[in-house]
Design a protein around this nucleic acid. Sequence first.
DNA 1: TAGATTGTTAATCGATTAACAATC
DNA 2: TAGATTGTTAATCGATTAACAATC
Lengths: 214, 214
Amino acid sequence: MVKRVSDAVKRRLPRYYRRLLSLDEAGTESVSSKELGALLGLTASQVRQDFNLFGGFGHQGYGYPVNKLREALEEILGLKRAWKMVVVGAGNIGRALAGYGYLGGDAFRVEALFDVDPAVIGTQVHGLTVKSADEMVSFINENNIDIAILTVPQEVANKVAHLISSSAVGAILNFAPVKLDAQENGPIIESIHIIDTLMSLTYQLSAKNITKPR
Amino acid sequence: MVKRVSDAVKRRLPRYYRRLLSLDEAGTESVSSKELGALLGLTASQVRQDFNLFGGFGHQGYGYPVNKLREALEEILGLKRAWKMVVVGAGNIGRALAGYGYLGGDAFRVEALFDVDPAVIGTQVHGLTVKSADEMVSFINENNIDIAILTVPQEVANKVAHLISSSAVGAILNFAPVKLDAQENGPIIESIHIIDTLMSLTYQLSAKNITKPR
DNA sequence: TAGATTGTTAATCGATTAACAATC
DNA sequence: TAGATTGTTAATCGATTAACAATC
């Protein structure tokens, strides 16, 4: 009954959720596929196709009940429970993410922060004491960590990712600007390449200047 | 002669570039579309199609000259010049990005960091003195800033984005978890929604457990 | 009821993959 | 030369859009 969920849909689900959350908080009772599509830059068809992958949430002539759909998405996205995370690498980005609180909610919790630098180990970051990377794998396993956020320098990213993959962690969120080698039966990997997005901007800015100089 | 570059290609260009850079630094002279595709998880066809959008860089029977292709991508992506940036919002992520240095290179430079909090204004972050948001637009215009990195709380993100759009900035890199309203003839906007990527992970972790419990 | 809007099938569009002649 | 690999056209695949009967 459950159809295949494409990557494109997978990426849209959080966007639907965020918007439905804000509609719900604003007290909106229902929303049509057309309205929601307009808010997100999608067609009404696309919205309906997407929601129908997970079941019929709408009512003809009425639209979708905001609260009910929000709840359903919360369930689908796994936001009804808390997820335990560790941050690996206490550099700029790592330290920033260690203070991460989810939109006022509590789905994501950073339980520990690791580094290899003796000068950094033992220091306090957002109420956490930086731990030695030597303790990482055992900490992940003993504390049932779900997600490891990888913010180490690119030179060692794959080495550290391998180490993480030897633990029981479920997923890695990678911020290093390298492609991590996927492991057979290893953690799910998603990457955020900030530098790629910056380059995409400079590409567009450069291309723009060719056709339409400012 | 230049064909339309799809969003999918636009997102692959930085990945090609990063890989070619590391191949070049490793002294590799040539790479075939098959080899490069394998390194990036793409088909050889796709690699050849992509490069052919920008001209014939390859040689039959030989492949692509790494250094020449890297140079070409550097040109295409606009990395031969420096881009001036400001960070708007001196919170966790903003402060982290203010210390941003590009992969040892010098294409991206953070020139200033702005905030509205009087307690933060005037403090030092990575060698920069946090400036008042009141000075932002004039600073952007007087210093020919190319890119504004937006790291303010979501509640004010669109308001601040509007303000930024009233300046001469070319692009906004948005980290706030909201969709920014696109402006007619306004800056190019790209967003990095960290929370969306986390939700995509928990979706996958949840879906995984339904079919294959651990 | 009449109007609105869904769920779902069919049509379209675009991106990816395959194929292969050209040629280094 | 023979083998390898490109550039490019054609085929396939999948995602998006359109259409419309069902129905609230």
